[in-house]
Design a protein around this nucleic acid. Sequence first.
DNA 1: AACCAGGAGAGAG
DNA 2: CTCTCTCATGGT
Length: 217
Amino acid sequence: MNLEDLYSLLFDIYGDLKWWPAETKEEVVIGAILTQNTTWRNVEKAIDNLKNKGICSLKGILFSEKDIVKEAIRSAGFYNQKYTYLKNISDAIVREGGIEILKNYSTDDLHKFFSSIKGVGKETEDSIILYVFERKAFVDDKYTRRIFSRLGITNTEGKKLPDHVIECAEREFNVEQLKNLHAMIVYLGKDICKSKPDCNRCPLKNDCETGINNLLK
DNA sequence: AACCAGGAGAGAG
DNA sequence: CTCTCTCATGGT
């Protein structure tokens, strides 16, 4: 089995999940910050609060009272930090001319731009580049590491994936596949791969235990 | 009632 | 460069 086989295996289970769930690109940016180490359920409440106040946008974040925004995003946890992070990224994007202007940037320049913002780490950066700007990026999150490790693809649970794995994925898949791959991995992670493996409930069943060899060669 | 969630940054070694 | 700690709410 290789990466493509893993993709079709997951696709048979989940299909096209149509990620990232959001009404606008700015909402994706906001959600990407809010979901840091937080369940999407709690992020949804925060985004609904922002929408109800009519401030679920970069300028909405920038030009609203601090306490109003903090109260709205409280359910997503770490709200003091995340408020600062949201202001940082909103300010940076708006000052650059907005998302439409950034679409003209090369993928490398987008990486440089976002990685320089305090509050935007590797995963958030890649998520935004993939889902907002629709450029190739492999999102290496906790679920990916756990599942790849459990499948025998890597033995790096808790650590970031090796560069050659990420390069392989970005070479073999197009943007739409990379979008759905990350979505499916998150779904699989939510379904079964919590703290302990439960291969009876896992949709991958035996493929998980037997491991995947010669994945990258 | 401990444990963890679609992380990131600061600080220490 | 790689650990470790902190940030904080809400569901199981």
